[in-house]
Amino acid sequence: MSASLPRPARWVASAFSVIAGLCLLALVLLTVADVVSRNVQGRSILGTVEISTVLLVAVAFLGLGAAEITGKHVSVSLIEARLPRLGRLVFSVLRILLLAAVGSLLILGLTEVYLGAVQRGETTNGVLGLVTAPWKLILVISFLVFFVLALWREVHQFLVLRGARSVSGVTA
């Protein structure tokens, strides 16, 4: 399935998941360093909680696209699996429409939230007062990549279903 996705899309999704992976490693190291510092030097690393929290925002969503490519997201195939080809085609069209609608609304909303954070100079509510806007931008981009990939995948499946023979010949 992933073979059907264009190379740039796969590249972006995989780059994002590498960044998320690095953030996750950073989260591990920061927490470990904080505990060690507290027990050895009697001093916490200032703002560990705040930094961890924003790192989690990146870790939680940057991998959305890659999870879509590798089919990690949960869905229920119980009913579709029992349907004839026509029924599957209808479901596929419905999914395309819904993904497009939800995707555009969510991206618009997330963009608005991001712009709001920029405008208000929003910061985290801790000692460090980290600026939240960049992390909110990460959300916009992560969801954008996710919906583009999900739609791409869905449209591809639709095409495969519609003209099973010709396309499967290409991807095999």
Binding site: G42, S44, L46, T48, V49, V127
Partner: peptide, 19 residues
């Protein structure tokens, strides 16, 4: 401690922990 009180804690050499 939390909020601005943490700054007061830092100024006497205490180690503020968020929790």
């Amino acid at each position: 401690s939390g909020g601005v009180v943490s700054e007061a804690m830092i100024s006497v050499g205490a180690n503020p922990v968020s929790m």
